[in-house]
Nucleic acid binder design. Structure first.
Lengths: 201, 201
DNA sequence: TCGCTTGCTGAACGATCGTATAACAAGCGC
DNA sequence: GCGCTTGTTATACGATCGTTCAGCAAGCGA
């Protein structure tokens, strides 16, 4: 009888990806407070030492997870805009409401994101990542607003307001999911965006 | 030579208040992860055992701190509305923009609030407090929106959108304070509110 | 089949966590 | 001035935290 291997060797990139996914799941399930090295390693089915081996420390793993989740969100937004066709207004609406519809408005993803927010003030590395992410999101929004005819002077403020609207809806969707449904949030975001752009001067 | 007392006896209510204030300061400075019993006790200048003695556990202290901070914010909002005079539109504007001006838009208060958010998913008690707080805020907003002439069918959605706008601006003000100034945030909120209510049907 | 590279394990370390508890002492009532 | 109440301290406990590291073993190449 041949005993099966006690563990499988995986190439570094694949193992890192597996740890990142496990970290995201733990963050979603237990919040930032529960994202310990041991909990993440258990979730990934590996030993705690592997986290230090591949990332050097748990902070770097969390930062990598942030970057990974953000890349997924960004890709989903780009896809939504591309699928919306050529009409500028439709592209703008798609960009905004995609944040509040699947696959972005997933409970696990929302929880992951708020766990990151809670780390921003304590970890300068996370804060830097957040600033970059926020900047990219707002830049994308400003470009779509410009396409949709929002005049240049109002661009910055309209983009900030729309970003805040989306973030606020996203936040409440995460904190108390029973207040309103995902579909309603997307509709509120679309209506709100219409209001924000109609009076933007 | 008379040696001075090693500590002062304080009546329970006053000591509890002192611990709550210390908890808020620690949450603001170090985030939820740093709000340990020992850190809070050190901040308050007492021994760690006092937290258990007066609150039973650190969770109850954090919940009490949440309730206390919320009461302060609520009082500041009421005061802002009262100071705005009788005009419905002015009262509505005061309610919204007061969230983004001193004393509410204080860095410590903002950090405290986001630390609470990060605890909502992990602690059901905190989640319940959040739901109550959010409900009160939205109810207050709906009343002011009704005064300002927003028709009843649009009331709920408009209030949700305005709350999200304020929360989003508040969040970004906390996460990266250099993106925009407090005064600009309040102005964006006022303009955004005008847009939200003008198209609300 | 054997050796070598290296991904991986698992135990151990010191620090810090929340909580419980026995002893102490501040300060009021008498 | 003195005892009593009780707010407060200090310590101890077990659990869990992040990190380190010596050694095992998986699986490829020869």
């Amino acid at each position: 009888m041949t005993s099966q291997p006690a563990f499988r060797r995986v190439e570094p990139d694949a193992r890192r990806a597996s740890l990142i996914e496990a970290c995201a799941r733990v963050l979603a399930r237990e919040g930032a407070a529960g994202a310990s090295v041991r909990a993440i390693a258990l979730e990934a089915g590996v030993s705690p030492g592997l986290v230090g081996h591949h990332f050097g420390g748990v902070d770097a793993l969390i930062a990598a997870t942030y970057a990974q989740v953000e890349a997924q969100v960004s890709a989903a937004l780009d896809a939504a805009v591309a699928a919306a066709g050529p009409d500028p207004r439709a592209r703008l609406n798609a960009y905004v409401s995609a944040n509040l519809l699947p696959p972005i408005a997933d409970n696990a993803l929302l929880s992951t994101w708020i766990a990151f927010w809670s780390l921003v003030r304590a970890r300068p590395e996370i804060a830097r990542l957040h600033d970059e992410q926020y900047g990219r999101f707002r830049a994308g929004l400003e470009a779509l607003l410009a396409e949709a005819g929002v005049p240049s002077p109002a661009l910055r403020r309209t983009a900030i307001a729309a970003t805040a609207l989306v973030d606020g809806l996203w936040l409440e969707l995460c904190l108390s999911p029973h207040t309103f449904a995902r579909g309603e949030a997307a509709q509120i975001a679309r209506e709100g965006l219409a209001g924000l752009t109609s009076t933007g001067r």
